[in-house]
Design a protein around this nucleic acid. Sequence first.
DNA 1: TTGATATGATACCTATTAGGTATTATGATT
DNA 2: AATCATAATACCTAATAGGTATCATATCAA
Lengths: 340, 340
Amino acid sequence: MIIETALFQRVALLKNTNGGVFFGGFGMDLRQLRYFVAVARERNFTRAAQLLNIAQPPLSRQIQLLEEELGVTLILRKSRPVKLTDAGRLFYEQAMQVLGRVDQMKAATRRVGLNQNSVLSIGFVASTLYGGLPSLVRKLRQHAPELDIRLLEMLSTPQIPALKEGRIDVGFGRLRHSDPNVGGTVLRDERLVVAVHKGTRLAEETGPLPLAMLTGETLIVYPKEPRPSYADQVMSLLQHDDVRPAEVQEVREIQTALGLVAAAAGICIIPSSARQMRSDVQYRPIEGARATSPVILYHRVGDTSRYIALIKKLIQDMYTENPPWLDGSEIRDVRGGHQT
Amino acid sequence: MIIETALFQRVALLKNTNGGVFFGGFGMDLRQLRYFVAVARERNFTRAAQLLNIAQPPLSRQIQLLEEELGVTLILRKSRPVKLTDAGRLFYEQAMQVLGRVDQMKAATRRVGLNQNSVLSIGFVASTLYGGLPSLVRKLRQHAPELDIRLLEMLSTPQIPALKEGRIDVGFGRLRHSDPNVGGTVLRDERLVVAVHKGTRLAEETGPLPLAMLTGETLIVYPKEPRPSYADQVMSLLQHDDVRPAEVQEVREIQTALGLVAAAAGICIIPSSARQMRSDVQYRPIEGARATSPVILYHRVGDTSRYIALIKKLIQDMYTENPPWLDGSEIRDVRGGHQT
DNA sequence: TTGATATGATACCTATTAGGTATTATGATT
DNA sequence: AATCATAATACCTAATAGGTATCATATCAA
């Protein structure tokens, strides 16, 4: 089992229908990254060139091309040893990460290509990590040991194209969608809670909070992009009850959001199962039938893979076990194929 | 504030002193990734070539070169539309991630290069996210608003070269090290706790657990690499008391470890501040003066940056506030410059 | 089954880019 | 100021990317 974290970002280059220069700004390649890393590490073009087994002048030139490409100076050459600019230091470290990432990709591809096992790629939103997904995966491995299970964290919206393109085989998200090629089965509707800093006014409340009590608070929502997202669900819920936060701060992911709550920077509405024990954060249920978020299983319409059916069965079995993360959820009959 | 998750991996190509072929296996470049993505998406070489504004034959050849490079078939051409193999589907998705990653890198580099703000890069191990780091960062932003603060998650061991090479400016880790160019200040010694599945024998205990009670359990340790790591600290602690687990399972990171504990797959020893509320996991303190893990501030020897001093002052201030995450820690006088 | 069409592969050629040697410019040290 | 080390520039060569033409193969309709 491999967990890969990828807040997936679609590269919008394949939709360019202008017929013009297609790769404007995309001249950089991995060779340049490797060259830059060598220079950045050695702080010396001559020595780096030796290590790279090339001559110094082409190395110098390639770094210049890289700087031109970026429009940023990466290396200050007016001193010996040369120095990196702030941008250069950032680029150095990022380049090493990218190169490492490429290594991983090659190794993983070889492993799959040379291994006859089936691969099942599962996309999931982060909050489902707390809502039974680890347990489901464990059971799935037991029932289908021939499977190479890959778990890919990605937001709900990008799971739809990922399914259609075969990058994932099944997805777990929280947004309804309109794509006719992707089916969705609502697994459960989960209660929402509000995360508040310990000691604040809202934390002292003892029962479910009416949404109106959130008026005037700074609201932290996630994920900020791509939209529509769970953030829009939260905003829509508040708007329906005409609740107006004093300020809305958008952040990238749930951990950041809870970190900000911990810093008393605001409140955040999260699914019940995603509650985490932080000594500086408390969670309060929210009043009202609408204060829920669905957990949806996405799969391709017409996908008759036996694994989809197995996943549904395992989920239904898990419901009968009434696990703790189900607290606050209204479950659905999974195998009945409830359409969203 | 930007949080980047990078389980840093060092590309070991710069240490090749054989003078031979330096880039064996490294011929791939981003162009090939883009080409492959286009074909994978369209499932049609001709159409993909049009979209890429190149002719079909060179596209075909580049994909073949890519397959030769990897030693794996990515595309099955005996059908129309062409099909991806499992390896091809994996590579497709990974390639999109890498390309997205490169985009981010370029955008971030431009932002820093065109922005006159100072950058302060902070490396941190994941467990420090629960131990005051968000609060520290917030205070730091208040005291130094001109700073562009970058947070990079990386393990303790790779923080040392990252500091020396200027990729990060300060680090928070848990391992003592021997490099004379990197200073370390022990911020506190944190109690360790054992995470156990709810309902098990160890969970029923009410006081601190003697280490001997862990004998015969399946022990989950993290991170599995690079070594030495916190995992070795844990193993060393058990070995000192001659405690033998039935089995040791190494996993990549703390979240995975706690997920396995949740699945009743074993127990895990974690720093006290990293406890998270999971309804299926409980935490028990460990008996003994040795059952601690240090939190260490790393910085370059001789680094007289005012930000290091400011960070230390803010940490000391935080100690006097006695925040909840300090529970279970023995703090140190930070500004005295305690050397490890 | 045959013919038509679409599309991927192969062969050979051209264009572009990467890399090399020689030389000049510049920083650091004595 | 002289010397040495090293980065940049100029010009040339080698290697690779991309193009056109053609062949091979898959698919579909009659």
